[in-house]
Design a protein around this nucleic acid. Structure first.
Length: 596
RNA sequence: GUCCCCGUAGCUCAGCUGGAAGAGCAACGCCCUUCUAAGGCGUGGGUCGCUGGUUCGAGUCCAGCCGGGGACGCCA
């Protein structure tokens, strides 16, 4: 969308210098902070090609950039272009307020966050993927919300998106759980009566693990039930299903709070009996070998050359005891997903600690000459570090006392703090609306805190920081949105539209920030990096806040000013900005309340 | 040992394909008879871990170091 403004300038310069517009376009840069201008054109390269000093060319270009609606000034080796606010509005506003949406509650602003980059392509996104019979710990927010944001962004960019929750619902832990369940003569009634069923199962697991450690008889029972489960013995299978159902119920509660949904819940158990054909294929293609009783794909001998020694170790495909492994399961699941969805891209939103695992099985997929082998992407992210007061240091995963921090607890705490603030700031709201706002704002704070920075860095989590509602936070974005909504409500009787009377810099800044959203969305998708969008939204919200606040002291600067023609134009911008910001928040997985 | 992530203001971090050092928080000073102050405006604060290299130009690219974290065969 921004190119609507920059393209004409690129064409003028290109024509003057005998270049292609694309060549000029590639040189554009945002001007430095203290410099006046909306678009900078560094003249170094073009000046070199022409054999003149950069400042000379800058001056020359400033001289030819005389089109309506722009002002060009040479500042040293830079040619800085300033857009006329009204020209920006005339160019952009019609794109953001298509006929019929200007005065209604609907807004075309969401169009600022649409792209056709992915048209006709499908992407599978594997994210969240918690283990059954365990809680969603706070660190699960990373995979869950990065994956959720990417799913929204891909969809906005034209992709067909399939959201996959690859549940960890298989393993020896369930044999133990069943053994414990039987040993303690527990009943379904007891489980469902528990305040928290996952805690109930978790506690059971802790007890039976301790017992198994102390008593070989118990350990033997656990082994027995693991085997029974693998063999599909009805009682074992039935109990496993009970555990799974109880866990899913708890997961759905948290996903419901976060507004996260999935299209596929096929977990590890689904693939447990489907791996033999893959193992057979690997063997028939002579890609496997035996090593200490285990079956491996020997990547070093298959792929390393004298010059390039990328691979240090073989990948284990099958254990010495016959059990299959992580890599085998991922490959099998990937075959299944490709045949079901025929994806053009498949994302795995999993922490960076597992990089090697993904590199390895991606390599095996290439050896198998899978058509999807080059469409796989591991979307890695850093760990959550929690501040430890006693040691005055950042530490992984746990709070004081080694207790794991649950996602639900953090969200509840955030909602509680937000509720106190809402009650204080806006006591007149109805109780149910206050509660809804508190949920949106509290969760928004936690989620945005997780998405605003680059995903590969570790997240340093402090309650006081993550639950802050001022500064560069989710609530800051939500507040700007609520202010825009408030103005729209008060403007019910105004009429909108054209001609355009937007003439000040604050209004232009809002328009330019909106215009840059599309590029941010496309970059967010190409880099699989939600923070690119998050940062662009902060810029937009800042421009909005600055614009609206200027009306506090200057009645003429208000949207709803005395001049009805100007008010109507400004209202169009309010509606467009509200739509753009609201859509941006939605893409990140935040709710944008209309008041707060 | 090999590979990966990180190192920019006191703290937490942005910085797009190399092009004129940024924000939030904290500190200090202003702006509420408010289109919602969860806001705005301003001030102070930086040899961008170090050393070389490429380049007209390096926080950004390359090489090598230093420091913090992580991964590296029968868990996932």
């Amino acid at each position: 969308m921004f190119d609507r403004l920059s393209a004409p300038i690129a064409t003028l310069v290109a024509t003057h210098l005998g270049l292609l517009p694309a060549q000029v376009n590639a040189l554009f840069a945002p001007p430095a902070k203290g410099v006046a201008g909306d678009l900078a054109l560094p003249c170094f390269q073009m000046a070199k090609a022409r054999g003149v000093p950069p400042p000379t060319l800058a001056t020359e270009l400033a001289g030819i950039l005389t089109a309506a609606g722009i002002t060009a000034v040479a500042t040293g080796p830079f040619c800085n272009v300033t857009f006329d606010p009204a020209a920006v509005a005339t160019t952009l506003l019609p794109l953001l307020s298509p006929a019929g949406t200007v005065n209604g509650s609907r807004s075309g602003g969401a169009l600022a966050l649409r792209s056709t980059l992915g048209a006709g392509q499908r992407v599978c996104i594997d994210f969240s993927s918690p283990n059954i019979a365990k809680h969603l710990a706070f660190h699960h927010i990373r995979s869950t919300m990065i994956g959720n944001a990417l799913a929204h962004c891909y969809a906005a960019a034209g992709w067909d998106v399939t959201r996959i929750n690859f549940l960890g619902d298989w393993g020896t832990a369930f044999g133990r759980l069943i053994a414990g369940w039987k040993r303690e003569h527990l009943t379904l009634e007891q489980l469902t009566a528990a305040a928290d069923q996952v805690t109930f199962l978790n506690d059971l697991y802790v007890r039976i693990s301790a017992a198994a450690k102390a008593d070989p008889v118990v350990e033997e029972e656990a082994r027995h039930w693991s085997k029974a489960l693998e063999d599909g013995e009805p009682e074992a299978r039935n109990l496993w299903q009970i555990f799974k159902t109880a866990s899913l119920k708890e997961f759905e509660r948290v996903y419901g709070l976060l507004g996260v949904t999935f299209d596929s819940w096929k977990g590890e158990a689904f693939y447990e009996d489907k791996m033999e054909p893959l193992l057979a294929e690997l063997a028939s293609k002579q890609l496997t070998s035996q090593d200490q009783g285990a079956t491996v794909v020997d990547l070093p001998t298959l792929l390393n050359t004298d010059k390039v020694k990328t691979w240090k170790k073989p990948v284990l495909i099958k254990r010495a005891d016959g059990g299959t492994l992580y890599a085998t399961r991922d490959l099998t699941a990937c075959d299944d997903r490709f045949s079901e969805f025929g994806f053009s891209r498949s994302l795995y939103v999993v922490d960076l600690g597992q990089s090697l695992h993904f590199q390895e099985w991606f390599a095996v997929a290439r050896l198998l000459q899978r058509p999807y082998a080059d469409k796989l992407r591991h979307i890695g992210f850093g760990v959550v570090l929690i501040w430890n007061d006693e040691e005055s240091a950042w530490a992984k995963g746990r709070t004081r006392g080694g207790k794991i921090m649950l996602l639900r607890e953090v969200l509840d705490e955030a909602i509680e703090r937000a509720a106190a603030i809402v009650a204080d700031k806006n006591p007149d709201l109805a109780a149910d609306e206050r509660a809804a706002i508190a949920r949106a704002v509290g969760i928004g704070a936690v989620v945005f805190n997780d998405l605003k920075n680059g995903r590969t860095g570790d997240v340093k989590f402090k309650f006081e920081e993550a639950l802050r509602f001022d500064g560069e936070t989710g609530p800051y974005l939500q507040f700007a949105h609520a202010r825009l909504c408030s103005i729209e409500r008060k403007a019910e009787h105004r009429t909108g539209g054209s001609p355009v009377h937007l003439t000040n810099e604050a209004e232009k800044a809002v328009l330019l920030a909106i215009a840059r959203l599309q590029g941010a969305l496309e970059r967010a998708v190409e880099l699989d990096e939600p923070s690119v969008l998050a940062q662009a939204l902060l810029t937009l919200a800042s421009a909005i806040a600055s614009w609206l606040t200027s009306g506090n002291s200057d009645l003429n600067a208000r949207v709803l000013c005395a001049d009805s023609a100007i008010a109507a134009s400004r209202l169009s911008l309010v509606i467009a900005a509200r739509g753009a910001l609201g859509e941006g928040l939605r893409l990140l997985g935040l709710i944008a309340p209309e008041r707060m």
